[in-house]
């Protein structure tokens, strides 16, 4: 894979709880990006959102982190990072991306300066792209959820890898947004042929109803949920009447 652009994939979200579907997104995206012939995926980062996000039924970040770490302990390329979840307030996705990019760039610089001049690799500076599911593109349209300049930088400067379930919805989302359309070459659409819609919402619903969730997420995570009695009727009522933090935070700042 010489001469390819090193790439790190970052997935932001609730991971409430992490499911096989989340883990599949990384596998699908990596295969797809390798097939372009231009990229070499060198890492994946799962970044659970902070408790301040204010989403209904959001379990504590420490639990969501612990579950994600367990789920990915056998992966040799995807890691869980707690920076975003440890911030005192909810962090814009762009801010999280900038943070991770600065770390990646730093590491790269260090490696370059440590290498003697004559052995300097011809490899390019690593890139960071946001990995997302099909429904993510629709969030760009939700009023008050995204700042226009943030969309511009997320898509224009970094780029998106979007896994869709064989529908044309992501295409439509690009078509309907001038910003997305302008940066189309920076948006990689991955078709998922195997329908595998294991949403965390369905998992929580099944758990509340006492139904089995085995084989939808790793056994270790199911065990953890049971031990900590995580998803119940009560936990689903958490943040019930509060507004999503992005909606209030950005309004105040504007």
């Amino acid at each position: 894979m010489a001469g390819r652009i090193p790439l790190v994939l970052l997935a932001c979200g609730s991971f409430n709880p992490i499911t096989y579907q989340h883990m599949r997104l990384f596998e699908l995206a990596r295969d797809h990006m390798h097939q372009t012939g231009q990229y070499q995926v060198i890492g994946g980062i799962v970044s659970p959102v902070s408790d301040r996000y204010g989403k209904q039924g959001l379990a504590l970040a420490k639990h969501r982190l612990a579950m994600a770490r367990m789920a990915l302990q056998n992966s040799d390329w995807v890691i869980v990072d707690d920076w975003e979840s440890q911030q005192p307030d909810w962090t814009e996705t762009l801010v999280t991306m900038r943070y991770h990019y600065s770390r990646i760039a730093e590491k790269y610089q260090r490696r370059i300066s440590d290498t003697p001049l004559e052995q300097k690799p011809a490899s390019c500076v690593p890139q960071l792209k946001l990995l997302c599911g099909a429904d993510f593109m629709d969030t760009f349209k939700v009023p008050g959820l995204w700042r226009e300049d943030h969309i511009e930088e997320v898509v224009g400067r970094f780029g998106l890898v979007c896994v869709s379930r064989g529908s044309l919805e992501p295409d439509r989302a690009i078509h309907e947004s001038d910003t997305l359309c302008r940066h189309q070459q920076n948006i990689f659409l991955v078709r998922e042929w195997i329908h595998n819609e294991i949403s965390a919402t369905e998992i929580r619903r099944a758990l509340r109803r006492g139904l089995s969730v085995k084989y939808l997420l790793p056994d270790s995570v199911i065990q953890y949920i049971k031990e900590h009695n995580l998803y119940t009727h009560d936990s689903e009522l958490m943040n019930k009447d509060s507004k999503l933090r992005p909606l209030t935070k950005q309004t105040v700042e504007d």
Partner: peptide, 11 residues
């Protein structure tokens, strides 16, 4: 089956 989980062996 509410959670679509169409993992066929053919796939």
């Amino acid at each position: 089956e509410w959670v679509t989980n169409d993992i066929s062996a053919t796939h």
